[in-house]
Amino acid sequence: MTMVSATPQIAPGRSLWASPLILGLTILAGTAIGETRLSFATVLQTLANHLWGASYPVDGIEAGIIWSYRLPRAIVAACCGAGLALTGVVLQALLRNPLADPYLMGLSAGASSGAVLVTVAGVGGGVISMSFGALTGALLAFGCVVVLAHAVSGGAGGGRATQAAAAIILAGIAGSQMFNALTAFTIARSANAEQARGIMFWLMGNLSGIRWEDVTACTLVSLAGVGLCLWHRRGLDAFTFGADGAASLGINVPALRGSLITATAIMVGVLVSKVGAIGFVGLVVPHAMRFLVGTRHDRLVPASALAGAVFLVAADVISRVIVPGQVLPIGVVTALVGAPAFALNLVRGAQR
């Protein structure tokens, strides 16, 4: 007898056409809502003045807030949310572990360590950029996690797959703590009090310093991530049956795994270097989208990218308005929302 899933699924053809509209409205809302009250008319007039050469009379200060501060911040938040959600999709598929995400796997901690070593400790002598340092740290962190997990599980597979899955998560937690300790040591040794305060705020997720020059890198890396994941969507689907099952379906497992994990590390490195380590986006969003659109990656990839973008823009808006006169680190908001949502998802999964 055929079992029918009770999980509601949204047909992609009926909803994905609206993705640009949803994303545009989200960015517009992120631009309009903030510490200073600005009308939507003022926002639209400012955008028209800059984009189409209109000549609406807009106050210079308000125009500067909209164009130079809020709009690039909203765009980067959307790109980071999409990229982090995609990294969760990729890691959970390749590792066949629902708890895999760049934050728990130590990628974010490694990227933070690399960025801090370059900017605070002066590693590279000014030749290495912050983004390159974050990328190197993310790759190093994941390499350490893989080596440790392999040593713990003894290359477990088959009947020991559960042990291997648990080992890589535990190894990720251990690696994350190690790189967090390295970051703290670097700050304590090399940073003054003012630098330490700024870096600690940035490590919890901070979009306050975003400018237009940051938009290009974040946009390119997120679009490339979406394209790469869609290109390899069948390979990601094949990993549902495990690495051996994917190989039997004709998938070049080492090449696919290597390219996607490298792409994941690049995304995490670039995004963390711009906004800091933001947790729970890559963990919660893919689970929510699987509940809505199913597990096929031709649906899951675009849905997760869109949901991640909307989620992080909304979290950024909340971080700016929830405490009057003060901007919270965006990681605080994502954790306050993401942790209960993930706990609820676990309870529902257990009941089903």
Rank of each mutant, 00 (worst) to 15 (best):
P8N: 07
I10P: 06
P12L: 01
G24R: 07
G24H: 10
A32Q: 10
A32Y: 09
I33G: 04
Q45V: 02
T46Q: 07
T46M: 04
A48M: 07
L51W: 12
W52I: 05
G53C: 08
V58W: 06
G60D: 08
R70M: 08
V76N: 08
C79K: 03
A82E: 00
A85H: 06
L99P: 09
A100G: 01
G106S: 06
A115P: 10
L117H: 15
A121G: 09
G125I: 09
A149Q: 03
A161S: 10
Q163S: 13
A171M: 08
A174G: 15
A188L: 14
A188D: 11
A191W: 06
N192E: 01
Q195R: 13
I199S: 00
W202F: 14
L203M: 12
M204R: 02
E213R: 07
T219F: 08
G225W: 00
H232F: 10
D237F: 01
F241W: 07
I266H: 03
V268T: 14
V268W: 02
S273N: 13
I278L: 11
V284W: 05
V285S: 02
P286C: 04
F291N: 08
R296K: 12
R299E: 06
L300E: 13
V310Y: 14
V313D: 09
D316F: 11
V317K: 14
S319D: 00
V321I: 12
G325A: 09
V327L: 06
V332G: 04
V333T: 11
A339T: 14
G349F: 01
G349V: 01
Q351I: 12
